[in-house]
Nucleic acid binder design. Structure first.
Lengths: 229, 229
DNA sequence: GTGCCAAACTGATATTTGTCAATTCAAATT
DNA sequence: AATTTGAATTGACAAATATCAGTTTGGCAC
């Protein structure tokens, strides 16, 4: 693990306020691992052993039920995941797999729970992080229930562009089918939705999606801070 | 406010572990109010003033977007709501209205946030509560993305029955349209879904829903602890 | 470059879900 | 008991989404 990685992890809201000694103790207990792409990191229904921190690469959180599968979210560096299961010491509700080769820090779940009792600043950061995540999922649920597939796609494009300094070109870091699942639609319908968005300022070639008319796209998408992050 | 109400609130996981003095201080700052039915308690986009605790009656949490409206959850006594917005001191993502006449305790948001720093047991209870709620919404999202409308209805019937000591008769405490919105479907489709479930051990007359063949219903519903609470 | 393979796209069709209109029903009031 | 009123239901239809099959495309190995 590089020194630079450690600095970035330390800067995460979850860890930034705790004492140096406590942070060092967590890191000492942690494992740092590399994984190839398409490796299952977590299986829903299992008990949590580690809090995961993606340092490099991307991770898909998904769930299965009766042969169907859906993507819940896609985790980009540097970010923790499955915090709630660790906090509650209860089974995972989501599975996780790497979408790309990834470097991941594994902090023993028990160490995290112990730290809640030892470091008040960490406990407060946990509250803040869980509340933030809760609100993220509420937005995702509203997005799912209140918008059509093409609307979700349009807003996803705008948000992703924003996350990349408002670049008009988005390079998809994974397969389109994964995006389709994330957006709650069949891969075929993602194709058609992209075709439909051509009328609203979006061009798509291969893994590149380009915003050609941001005003038109925004008008079609109706972004809303209460639905989009 | 009755003494009995106070006892019940004190027993909530969120408040049960904190010191008597701190609990008393929260309650002293709180207001207790009665509301008629169909009163808007909270509007999405506003800043949180109070943590709400439903003591009697039921409250619908819903959200709007571009003329559409959907129910997120229905809160029954005794339960808190909009905890995450209070914790983060950020705008509500949901609106709330009473479905029945209700008695509600209003705890000033600032007092709740202050208490996090003063009472470690309360801070820990907040972590636990937020993690639990987070997992609840993840289940709701999975339920929405992985099941059809009738499947959601079938599982809702089973879960509600379980919450009422496995009674085979469920008395709906609110309008069917509210249930339809909660289940993410049009009221007309709820009617049709109920008709369809007649083939799977469900009878429905007015506001009563009866399970006539639990085995058949369970087989159709495929309940799953990773999707249903 | 050529060939190969999986992913993506396209068209046809089925299924699910939503919408609109008309009717029935049920609860509440008089 | 009759009346009233809004909710619920039903039927017809429209729109959205899923599924299946066949075709094209883009990236990768050789």
């Amino acid at each position: 693990m590089r020194h630079d990685d450690l600095t970035q992890i330390r800067k995460l809201p979850l860890f930034s306020k705790m004492s140096d000694a406590h942070f060092a103790s967590l890191m000492k207990a942690a494992l740092f691992q590399r994984f190839p792409e398409q490796v299952i990191l977590i299986e829903e229904g299992h008990r949590p052993d580690f809090l995961h921190v993606v340092v490099e690469g991307s991770v898909e959180l998904f769930a299965r039920h009766r042969g169907r599968e859906t993507t819940i979210e896609i985790i980009a560096p540097v970010m923790t995941f499955i915090l709630a299961a660790v906090a509650q010491d209860d089974v995972y509700l989501k599975s996780a797999r790497t979408l790309t080769p990834a470097r991941i820090l594994l902090i023993p779940a028990q160490a995290v729970r112990d730290m809640i009792g030892r470091d008040a600043a960490f406990a407060h950061a946990m509250i803040s992080e869980l509340a933030l995540r809760y609100r993220g999922i509420v937005r995702a649920l509203k997005n799912e229930k209140l918008r059509s597939g093409s609307e979700r796609l349009a807003n996803w494009i705008l948000r992703t562009s924003r996350e990349q300094e408002n670049s008009n070109t988005i390079e998809l870091g994974y397969e389109k089918r994964t995006l389709a699942s994330r957006l709650g639609m069949a891969p075929e319908n993602l194709s058609r939705a992209l075709l439909q968005l051509a009328k609203h300022g979006v061009a798509s070639r291969g893994r590149k999606i380009e915003i050609t008319n941001r005003k038109a796209l925004t008008s079609f998408a109706s972004p809303d801070p209460l639905l989009d992050s």
